[in-house]
Amino acid sequence: MKEPLVEVEKVTFSYNGEIVLEEVNLELFAGDFCALIGPNGSGKSTLLKIIVGLLKPQQGRVRLFGKEIENFHEWWRIGYVPQKVTSLVDPVLPLTVAETVGLGLQGKPKSHGFSKKEVILSALERVGLADKADKLLRELSGGQQQRVFLARALVGQPQILLLDEPTTGVDFTAQERFYELLGRLNREGLTILIVTHDIAVVDRHVKQVACLNRKLVFHGKHEDFCKNPEVCGLIPGPHHLIGHLH
């Protein structure tokens, strides 16, 4: 039987006594491309932070690649893109694109046979920004900055990519391009879990949808998501299925 890469079991989490997640179960298998959606305050980002070890659940457990999160040390296997990455871009800081991507190599094993520069350029190539390596991060557009942070998450050759609302504050065209890029990475074998509000944009690319509203109210194929009006109604805005690329 296939072992899940991420296994969330009966996870409960509360902020100051207010329950945000209640007995949430979620499994992610190799090759999955899952959108984690839900209304504001439904616990999406909290769940992602629990999965990457930034928050500790009050109850339940998380297993990564078959190991309890407390005993998991191979963080290079996980790439993480935090929320609002463009807010990290300091207009005063002269940080180059290559230097930003290079940070993703921290804590990761060295790639034998390749120099650090080659590894960075290869990650930038994957996101279509190899020609911007020496540019300052602050000089790029919001959409390009998003892709730089995606390259930073990819540079350590992770097996799973976790993204927390990566396209917030980015225009529609850049969002489309970003999700197309994620779709391509998934087809290349990368497992992806993305927290998003943009279900109308993302549903053309994802394979599964997991909908949170304190509890996990839906987890399945995205085609089936809107067949359930009760669950579908939790997400504001248009969320008809436009088509599917897979």
């Binding site: 040390h73 996980i78 993480y80 940070l103 921290q106 930073r152």
Partner: peptide, 19 residues
Amino acid sequence: GEALFFISFDEESARTSGL
């Protein structure tokens, strides 16, 4: 130096990279 910069620039991501 690079690790110190990482925790100074983006502590959350630095934590998730196992530093």
